[in-house]
């Protein structure tokens, strides 16, 4: 009916205007305008497109808390949308951008890992899944080094039970990360300090066997 056409073109006009702003790089302005857009044209076919554009604008404008919230609600309301993998990717990247280094708060790292894993499992063939895979490895490395750093903190203060448990977390959950070699070494050292020489030798052998040319396995002689 007539009213739909007018509304249709009006929605299209505002959508195109916002798109131009994004192309010109005025991300924050575009994100602000697109909030009014989705309130004014909730029923139009442009509604979902507008939401995706707003997620992109917020993300490029480094408003990661906003892009995180928008992408999360998009995925919930449009579970089968053709571009839902993009929204999931944006959710993961928003967390990724708020991640901490290995000696800082790991909460966003963990949330990013969850989002990337969901992207890869639900949309294995999406072009975003490949990029997700590479980022996952980097996130696991950071979290593993966080465990290692806290373990060494307790090792330096002779809290060997605490230290050993932290190193075992790396071995249990993060074998494929860069922190594994050092964790095996320090686990052996912690066992030795506790007088558990059988366990110390077992870790030393494991380190030598799996990572023969690592700098850490050359230091393990005393525990063999």
């Amino acid at each position: 009916c007539a009213s739909d056409d007018i509304e249709y073109t009006e929605a299209e006009k505002q959508y195109e205007a916002a798109k131009k702003r994004v192309e010109k790089g005025e991300y924050n302005m575009a994100a602000f305008e697109l909030e009014k857009f989705s309130a004014n044209f909730p029923y139009s076919t442009y509604a979902a497109k507008g939401e995706l554009l707003r997620i992109f604008a917020a993300y490029k404008g480094s408003e990661f808390i906003l892009s995180e919230m928008l992408s999360e609600s998009f995925v919930e309301r449009h579970p089968k949308h053709p571009h839902v993998d993009y929204a999931l990717y944006m959710l993961a990247m928003s967390h990724y951008k708020q991640r901490g280094s290995e000696s800082k708060d790991p909460t966003h790292n963990k949330l990013a890992i969850e989002a990337f894993k969901r992207l890869i499992s639900e949309h294995p063939r999406s072009k975003y899944a490949k990029d997700g895979q590479a980022r996952l490895q980097k996130l696991y490395d950071t979290i593993a080094s966080h465990e290692l750093i806290v373990g060494k903190y307790y090792f330096d203060r002779e809290r060997y039970v605490a230290a050993a448990n932290r190193f075992q977390t790396v071995i249990k959950e993060y074998q494929t990360t860069s922190a594994i070699e050092e964790s095996l070494y320090y686990l052996a050292a912690s066992y030795a300090e506790m007088g558990l020489f059988k366990d110390a030798r077992q870790m030393a052998l494991l380190l030598r066997h799996n990572y023969p040319n690592s700098e850490w396995s050359s230091r393990v002689k005393e525990y063999l």
Binding site: G100, S103, K104, D105, T107, H146, I149, V150, Y153
Partner: peptide
């Protein structure tokens, strides 16, 4: 948690 600028050990 919440330490975006401070190192973990400085609080721990």
């Amino acid at each position: 948690q919440g330490n975006e600028k401070t190192e973990d050990a400085v609080i721990r």
